[in-house]
């Protein structure tokens, strides 16, 4: 079976849990005070979905606004984007809007976007009304997930959904031999499974 290789980016305000979600998913690690990300980290995982397999190359970016000046590189050619907000922080949700807007105007046309309302283990401190978030995402036709990088809740499902949506959106390319098509490389499956490489602390 062929493997689709694709780049995805994590986006969102600082300290919402972008790195933590990626680390939880790829390495099943969680640190309460994850070191803050400067510029970007890079993680990768091979995902098996019913239709085939997708190698997610995850660019985990810095949350601070001004890194965007140098960060447009990261979502260039990205096939998927994970926009994260913190359910206990109103401002981080407001940022989601501007990210969606930016991606729609600047990124690849068929980029798959999912939104994660992270830290759902802290329900008591919730500031974002859940129905409001769901309604907003429904209007934007974007899948919304409640996640907790701490408990792992929703993390697996979210990345699986992202992977399968990306697969669906790009399967046309898979048929072609395109070894090096610019819009995402497609390679024949390798025997290696990266998720078990057991490397510590992918956080620069």
């Amino acid at each position: 079976m062929a493997t689709m290789e694709c780049k995805i980016v994590t986006l969102g305000e600082g300290r919402v849990g972008k790195t933590s979600l990626a680390l939880k998913y790829v390495k099943n690690e969680f640190h309460k005070d994850e070191i803050s990300t400067v510029n970007a980290n890079y993680l990768t995982k091979l995902v098996q979905i019913p239709q085939g397999s997708v190698q997610l190359n995850i660019w985990d970016t810095a949350g601070q606004e001004r890194f965007r000046a140098i960060a447009s590189n990261y979502y260039r050619q990205a096939k998927g984007a994970l926009i994260v907000y913190d359910i206990t922080d109103r401002k981080s949700f407001d940022k989601v809007v501007s990210w969606i807007k930016e991606l729609k105007s600047q990124a690849e046309k068929n980029i798959v976007i999912v939104v994660a309302g992270n830290k759902c283990d802290m329900e008591k401190e919730r500031q974002i009304n859940r129905p409001e978030a769901l309604e907003f995402c429904r209007k934007m036709q974007i899948r919304h997930f409640d996640t907790s990088a701490k408990s792992g809740n929703g993390v697996e499902e979210m990345f699986m959904e992202l992977a399968s949506q990306i697969f669906e959106a790009n399967k046309g390319e898979l048929g072609q031999s395109g070894r090096n098509s610019r819009r995402g490389k497609i390679t024949v499956e390798k025997t290696k499974h990266r998720e078990n490489s057991g490397k510590k602390g992918g956080c620069c």
Binding site: V38, N39, A40, N73, C204
Partner: peptide
């Protein structure tokens, strides 16, 4: 790829946590 993907964090932190 551009080398800056790796080096930006080295430079902007002056290797403080590298």
């Amino acid at each position: 790829i551009n080398s800056s993907l790796i080096t930006v964090q080295w430079f902007t932190c002056m290797y403080a946590y590298t």
